[in-house]
Design a binder for these strands. Sequence first.
DNA 1: ATGCTTATTGACCGCTAGGTTAGGGACTCG
DNA 2: CGAGTCCCTAACCTAGCGGTCAATAAGCAT
Lengths: 191, 191
Amino acid sequence: MRLFAVRGFHETSMAEVARAASVSKALIFWHFKTKEELFMAVLNRLLEPYFIDFAEEAGALDEQAQIVRLIDLYMQFVRENGGSIRFFVAQLLHDEKLSDGLTNQVLQLYQGYRALLVDLIGRAQERGLCKRDFPPADAVSFMLSTLNGLLIGFLFSGENGVNLDGAIAMLRHWLFGDAPQNGPGECPPSP
Amino acid sequence: MRLFAVRGFHETSMAEVARAASVSKALIFWHFKTKEELFMAVLNRLLEPYFIDFAEEAGALDEQAQIVRLIDLYMQFVRENGGSIRFFVAQLLHDEKLSDGLTNQVLQLYQGYRALLVDLIGRAQERGLCKRDFPPADAVSFMLSTLNGLLIGFLFSGENGVNLDGAIAMLRHWLFGDAPQNGPGECPPSP
DNA sequence: ATGCTTATTGACCGCTAGGTTAGGGACTCG
DNA sequence: CGAGTCCCTAACCTAGCGGTCAATAAGCAT
């Protein structure tokens, strides 16, 4: 997992994997028929922490709080899994063939998240908790674009090159009309 | 260029390049000392269309129109260069070492674009053309996040998986308080 | 023609890659 | 104990890799 994640598929040789695992190369080929098969297994293992359960922990909150919580979870997730996300994004962009099953899993994850948000925003709009300028699906598309943009900003320049909290405050302002409060982030002009 | 762009550095062999170019492998090594050197040259060639001149064509417009134009240019650029952008993003995320000079050029491009926007929004704010809720730099960070998010949405699901025009209308609404006009895009709920 | 530089090639080289194979311990079940 | 299965290794195999080299063709001044 470590080798594939930091060096990629083609730059990692089976000999290296064997050495890093302190086993013989032949053993790996006994457990996995081909290098590709090992790689797929690695992909799935790396993907495991991506499945989180949101429903159970958010039952008691109102819609606005749940939306905020979902956004926070996204950002927390980005912060905690930057390394492997980077790997996955590069992999998905680069090697459609090798990423086959991966694409579906990620897409499923993404659509689940999106559906959750659409539902929440729809309900929030009905109850007058947030602005009604746009249909929920459009609002969510917009939000997710921003979140994804923050993600890749984070991937390229790291924690201190992009102001996650500041941007999230602006998202809240956009959604709920909050006063632009300054949260824990100090909002320095990003370099 | 074609081979490296669609298959990447490690999956492209010099023999393939030679065959595709209908020359002998040795000739390539006469023109380029190493495979890496050829790759760098390819990177630079692919990067050429990325340099556009904005200043000259926007002199007569007011700030708001210039901002809108800049955003349109971004999206037009994304639409026209999706293939190579995909390649570059994957390359940058994956192979920090090989991307060395590339990183700087892209960063420079990006910072230039950002600076242009910050300047424009600052001036637009002074003249009351757009909302003043946030300092220009923060507004631009937010905008760029959204644009980048649209970019990667486009990279992953193509033109009809993401609604570029709809999202841009929402950006305009956010910036200028426009009525949410429906432009040429019909804003279908993205699948 | 005669050199001289610039292009171009087929043959070749060392090496590493993914993958195989024959065989040997270790554990299990009768 | 002994047959069978599972796990594991050293050694090996071959294709293809990046890269080199001697030979030579093409362009071009003198």
